[in-house]
């Protein structure tokens, strides 16, 4: 790790102030489960590290009407074990239960995961698949506009995610095919159905990060059943390829995972 200036603000406002002061050289530390390994490998070298762990008001899980509010600093384990989440969106709790491993889930946070937008992270699929709204200290950003590319988001300088709002769907589920080595998503598909709206979001597979599958969504809108996806396929163009999975294999897995997610959402 390179040396950095460590700051421990108490409020979002202070944190935002520090971030602004750091210019482009500041980084927010949430759970640190991706950032710290990256810094250890000297692939990231923030001049200032702004620790959010003692900032008030960034945690908490609340159901407000038909919307589930999850504070940005909420840990994966807390989402996974939350009675509120398990009741409102069991597919989201299950997704959180499958992130990393138990020790990682005890540190990693939803806000950190989303802000980093790792192309193999799980939460971005849930945000897109549920049509979530990402709330920052400055504005509200629809998930469809938030994830702009690999490790890239709509967040502007000095902007801090404070919470994520998930509309509660009728049905939702996530199916992940983990990379055998890292256990990150090699292909993860989140399906969500709310009223007549169906969303299918794919993570792990796209060279530009999480993306939706309009064809799959259209087919499932007609009938929300795995059979509706028969005959549909995803082109391998633009998908990631590495030693563990070629773009072809990833394209195939998207189809399989999508069907399994639909079945899971239907309780099959």
């Amino acid at each position: 790790m390179y040396a950095f200036n460590y700051q421990r603000p108490k409020t979002v406002r202070q944190a935002a102030g520090l971030l602004a002061k750091a210019g482009g050289d500041g980084k927010l530390l949430a759970g640190g489960q991706t950032l710290l390994p990256t810094m250890k490998q000297r692939l990231a070298s923030p001049a200032m590290l702004i620790d959010l762990n003692q900032v008030d008001g960034m945690g908490g899980i609340e159901l407000k009407g038909r919307n589930l509010h999850i504070g940005a600093m909420t840990k994966h384990a807390d989402v996974a074990n939350s009675h509120i989440v398990k009741t409102a969106i069991p597919g989201l709790a299950a997704l959180a239960e499958g992130i990393g491993d138990p020790a990682v889930r005890n540190r990693g946070t939803i806000g950190g995961s989303i802000a980093n937008n790792d192309p193999a992270a799980d939460y971005p699929a849930a945000c897109l698949g549920l049509g979530a709204t990402i709330v920052t200290n400055k504005r509200k950003i629809p998930a469809d506009e938030f994830f702009t590319g690999m490790f890239d988001t709509a967040l502007e300088d000095g902007e801090i995610i404070t919470k994520v709002i998930f509309p509660v769907p009728q049905k939702a589920a996530y199916e992940k095919f983990p990379n055998p080595a890292s256990r990150y998503a090699m292909v993860g598909v989140f399906v969500g159905k709310k009223g007549s709206d169906v969303r299918v979001a794919v993570t792990g597979a796209g060279a530009n990060g999480v993306f939706r599958l309009p064809e799959f969504e259209a087919a499932l809108k007609t009938r929300f059943n795995a059979k509706s996806l028969d005959g549909l396929s995803v082109p391998a163009d633009g998908l990631n390829g590495d030693i563990h999975a070629s773009p072809d294999y990833r394209a195939h897995l998207i189809g399989v995972m999508a069907k399994r997610a639909v079945n899971k959402a239907l309780g099959k």
């Binding site: 055998p180 080595a181 890292s182 990150y184 030693i243």
Partner: peptide, 23 residues
């Protein structure tokens, strides 16, 4: 089933951590 050290044609070790080498 799982393990394989993989060098690319330039001799860079692609599987140089547990992120890529399947233990």
């Amino acid at each position: 089933l799982l393990e394989g050290a993989h060098y690319n044609k330039d001799g860079q070790l692609v599987t140089a951590s547990y992120m890529d080498y399947t233990m």
